[in-house]
Design a protein around this nucleic acid. Sequence first.
DNA 1: AGTGGCACCTGTGTGC
DNA 2: TGCACACAGGTGCCAC
Length: 272
Amino acid sequence: MPELPEVEVTRLGIIDTLVGNVIEDLFISDKQLREPIDLRVKDTIGYKVNDVQRRGKYLIICTDNGNILLHLGMSGHLKVLDANTEYKKHDHFSIKLSNHKEIRLNDTRRFGLVSFIPKNMDILLDKHLSILGPEPFSDEFTGKYLFEKLQKRTISVKACIMDSKVVVGVGNIYASESLFLSKINPQKSACKITLKQANELCMHIKEILKRSIAQGGTTLKDFSGADGKMGYFVQRLNVYGHEGKPCPICSSIIKSVVISGRNTFYCPKCQK
DNA sequence: AGTGGCACCTGTGTGC
DNA sequence: TGCACACAGGTGCCAC
């Protein structure tokens, strides 16, 4: 489900419900997610939520007695519910709050993550977060930075921008879309990208992620914000899922190709 | 060290 | 209708 825009839309959807309220209890299912749920998250019970942050596709719920780290994987989503709403299949984690609301994680495929960052530890030193590259909206993520990263790699440019050590938050949809806007063939070797192309690509990654957040993210199958609303960015996609349809620029037929195991969409005429 | 392949898991859609 | 199979928005580990 979620790439960076969907995670950010989720964050914006839960922050007002969480901040300023006390975590009264947690529900922890016995099913294992990507890792077993870190039971130390119980340390946060009885503490007020101070903030909800995002790093890449991870959400961090901050309290004075430690932080809950969440990842939505492929199929996870968070919803704001009234207290004691009936549990559904694949509900794996829930935060019960003093305002009689719950933040509940439902994750069909269980590729998500619930972990814990102790109170005295720098959040960014967590093992999941410390290995991540820059945020796409940060000043650190520039065309020059991207160019230098790409130059060292022989893999495809698409696989490279999806590498969270290069830049966080670019998943399969926005990788195809940003390469389309930049007129770069996704199969092109990363080290063959010019500085000019890297500048274009950097700019379009920032632009497309921002535009998607503004539209509430991309709803393909089941993504919705924490309020259950669908994302409308799917209507703005140029190539993703459009195999066999005409390119919106040149009307050539959009093709698909598998790159590192992921379906990839591009216009063979526009993208060189 | 970098790379491709694969595993993790469930649900859905397609073709026979 | 039932079955087998491919595929899905992510990430990390494993041999090469």
